[in-house]
């Protein structure tokens, strides 16, 4: 629902990079390039950012 704080496999803290990553993707940058430049090297960490689906805004509607 919200980006996990750490990578499930190696434990690197990634959530702090997520907003930067998202902005770059929205600008049309390639995820590959954005991840490289953010210093996310291992593929365990790359999939964390790459496959994130933000659902919190939708789920928030069900709580008054």
């Amino acid at each position: 629902m919200l980006i996990p704080i750490r990578c499930f496999s190696c434990g690197k803290q990634l959530a702090g990079l997520y907003e930067q990553f998202k902005q770059r993707i929205e600008k049309g940058e390639k995820p590959e390039k954005a991840l490289d430049e953010l210093g996310v090297k291992r593929y365990c960490c790359r999939r964390m950012l790459f496959t994130q689906a933000d659902l919190i805004d939708e789920i928030m509607q069900y709580k008054s």
Partner: peptide
């Protein structure tokens, strides 16, 4: 964000200030 967490010891803080913790309405 993690920057909203205040610690009683000023030397101790969260390493990254931009970690989203939860969203509030």
């Amino acid at each position: 964000y993690s920057k909203d967490i205040k610690c009683t010891d000023p030397k101790i803080e969260i390493v990254d200030k931009k970690i989203p913790i939860v969203k509030l309405k």
